[in-house]
Design a protein around this nucleic acid. Structure first.
Lengths: 167, 167
DNA sequence: TCAACTTACATGAATGTTCAAGTATTCCGC
DNA sequence: GCGGAATACTTGAACATTCATGTAAGTTGA
C-alpha cells in the first residue's frame, strides 16, 4: 500500500519542524495520501495499457485523439499543443516520433511559412480506432466502476474547483 | 484549457466507431476530462516547485520523506521501494542519484548480504526540512484551498474507492 | 523600408522512468 | 549439504520530458 509520509506535509515531530507553516491536519493528510495513490494507480494502469496495445504513451494518444476531431484531421502545431495540453517542445519531439510511426504528417502552412500543420494519417486514425475500446474499458474499470453516480458528479465538481478556483 | 477528445472515450461519430464498446456518456466524459486536467495541474505545480526549490523530482522527495520517518532514518531498499511506491529498479537509480547528492547512503545489510540499507544523511534531512514548507504550501494552494471541507472528505472517499474497490 | 522584436518551431543536452537482463546471496527440499 | 529456485539489487538500453537555445519567418514602428 502506498504511504505518503507525514514528514512531507506535516513534519510531525515538533522539535524538528520549521515553525509558522500551515501543515496538513490528519484529514487533509489522509486525503492527500489517498489522492496520490489514486492518481498513481490510474496513471500507471492507462499508461501501461496504451504502451502494450499501441506502443505509445498517453500523451501521444491524446495528441492523435485531438487531431482526429479536428476539421480535416488537421491542426497547426501551436493549436494542437494547446489542445493536448503539451508544451511546444514536447509536441515537436512527439510529432517527430509520430511521424516516424506514420501516424501523422507535417506540412508547411500556406499563409504562414513559419508554421506547420499536423495531419492525422489513415494509419493514425486506424490505430486510434483499434486502441480506443480497450482504453475506454481501462478508464471504466479503474475509475468509474469504483464510483457511484453521486461520486462521479462530486469528482467533477472537485476537479472543476481545482482547475478553476473561485478566488 | 485542456480538452480531452471525445474520440478517445466516446468515439462519437457512429459510423467510425467500433461497436459493442461501453463508451463514456456525457457526464462521465466531462468528469474524465476535468479529472485529467486537475491531475495535470497538480502534478506540474508540485513537480516544478520541487525542482526549483530542491532540484529533485517528487519521486525522490517521497523517497527521502519515507526515510525520514523510519527508525534510525534507515530502511532496506525493498521496504523503501514499497513505501515510496516505486519499482526496485527506479529506486536503485534514484538511490544512485541521491547518494551522489549526499542525501542518502547505502550500507550492506548485516544478516543478509544480498541487501542494502538506505540511510538518510543529515544533509538529506536538512534539504527535506528546508523544502517541506513550500511543498506543503503548494499542496494547499493547488488543492485544499480550492475545496470545501465536504469536498475534502468526498475526495478521500473517492480515492479510497478507486484504490480499494469493493468488488 | 529597415532594424528590432516577436512568433513558430526545432534541436540537443540532461535527467527520469521503464523493461529486460545480469549478478550475488539465501532458501528449500531431498 | 547440494542443486535449483527465489530474493535483493544493479545495470544498461530505449524512450519521454524539460530546459535552454537556435533558426527562420512575420510584424511593427520610426
Amino acid at each position: 500500500m502506498f504511504k505518503y509520509s507525514a514528514t512531507i506535509t506535516t513534519m510531525a515531530s515538533s522539535h524538528t519542524a520549521p515553525a509558522g507553516v500551515r501543515w496538513l491536519n490528519a484529514d487533509e493528510q489522509s486525503t492527500w495520501r489517498a489522492f496520490l495513490a489514486m492518481n498513481k494507480l490510474i496513471r500507471e494502469t492507462l499508461e501501461r495499457q496504451l504502451q502494450q496495445d499501441a506502443g505509445m504513451p498517453m500523451t501521444y494518444y491524446i495528441i492523435l485523439a485531438m487531431l482526429s476531431e479536428a476539421p480535416d484531421r488537421t491542426l497547426r502545431m501551436t493549436e494542437l499543443a494547446a489542445m493536448a495540453g503539451t508544451s511546444q517542445s514536447q509536441l515537436s519531439h512527439a510529432a517527430t516520433r509520430l511521424e516516424e510511426s506514420g501516424w501523422i504528417e507535417r506540412r508547411r502552412c500556406q499563409g504562414d511559412k513559419r508554421g506547420y500543420q499536423a495531419v492525422l494519417t489513415d494509419a493514425g486514425f486506424a490505430i486510434l480506432r483499434s486502441v480506443s475500446p480497450s482504453h475506454v474499458e481501462s478508464v471504466r474499470s479503474v475509475l468509474f466502476d469504483a464510483l457511484t453516480p453521486q461520486q462521479v458528479s462530486q469528482l467533477r465538481a472537485i476537479a472543476g474547483a481545482v482547475t478553476n478556483p473561485e478566488v
